[in-house]
Write a protein that binds this DNA or RNA. Structure first.
Length: 258
DNA sequence: ATGCCCGTGACACACGGA
């Protein structure tokens, strides 16, 4: 079973790229982030014509998350991260698919830092930490996939020294990610590529993709049940080079059946 | 230190992104 995550940076602006990628790689489940579309503007017909069911939580202009599934029913569990009634951002959606809980998340960016946006990010991380711990108590396979907006280590940044004050790489943000993983999660990409440089994002500026000046910020965290089922993982890097691409590339894992 | 390049919303440029 192949599961992917892709920050599309505008689901309607990205639709030709998204459909081509779905057609060429046929993932079973896809977590999308940054739809940048209100609920009623999600391109459901095109997604269905491509062979997928979908649930999504849109928002005008910003944020927005979706889960697509080909073949397996989607049973939605929630469409917001618990813990803050006043958080209006569409950044989390969760479902049961094929006997697994799949959480699709878009963690806040946090810049400029320090400041209220970084505080929001760290607060969101605390809520994710609490919810992730709760999920682990249920003894069911769980995947937390999405754009975490964190480079976990120096290996995940083309020039670490330039990013130390940035909200994607500040020590407290890396620590929040590490604390989450230390609950017992497996960082799937790093498990498959323990020492390799592997990026999921390249800025639109400065020919970042051409220079491979990238970041690894899209992650799969696997609950203990799934660690032994992890067969492979990767980044569809070439998609970043397509015309009208997102600044992120699709990232995926392959799991064995049971 | 800053802009670079994008999508969105709405019609010019502001905003957010990472």
């Amino acid at each position: 079973m192949k599961i992917a995550t892709y920050n599309v940076n505008g689901v309607n602006g990205r639709l030709p790229v998204l459909l081509r990628w779905l057609h060429e790689t046929a993932p079973d489940v896809v977590c999308l982030q940054e739809l940048k579309a209100p609920q009623e503007k999600f391109p459901l017909k095109a997604i269905e014509d491509a062979g997928y069911q979908a649930i999504w939580h849109g928002q005008k202009s910003w944020n927005g998350v979706a889960i697509l599934s080909r073949g397996h029913e989607i049973q939605e569990l929630r469409r917001e991260l618990p813990g803050d009634e006043e958080d209006t951002h569409s950044r989390y959606i969760e479902a049961i698919i094929n006997n697994m809980v799949i959480g699709c998340l878009y963690l806040p960016n946090g810049n400029p830092a320090p400041g209220p946006k970084l505080e929001y990010k760290l607060g969101w991380f605390e809520r994710l930490h609490a919810h992730a711990a709760e999920l682990l108590t249920h003894d069911v396979p769980v995947i937390l996939a999405g754009d975490y907006n964190v480079m976990p280590t120096e290996l995940d940044v083309y020039k670490p020294e330039r990013w130390v004050d940035d909200a994607l790489f500040r020590p407290e943000v890396r620590e929040a990610f590490k604390n989450l993983v230390d609950q017992g999660w497996t960082d799937a990409l790093r498990k498959i590529y323990p020492n390799e440089v592997i990026y999921t994002f390249w800025d639109y500026f400065r020919n970042a993709y051409g220079r491979n000046a990238g970041l690894r910020i899209d992650h799969f965290l696997l609950s203990p049940h799934l660690k032994k089922r992890l067969l492979n993982a990767g980044v569809d890097k070439e998609v970043r080079g397509w015309e009208k691409s997102s600044d992120h590339a699709p990232t995926w894992i392959e799991l064995s059946e049971e």
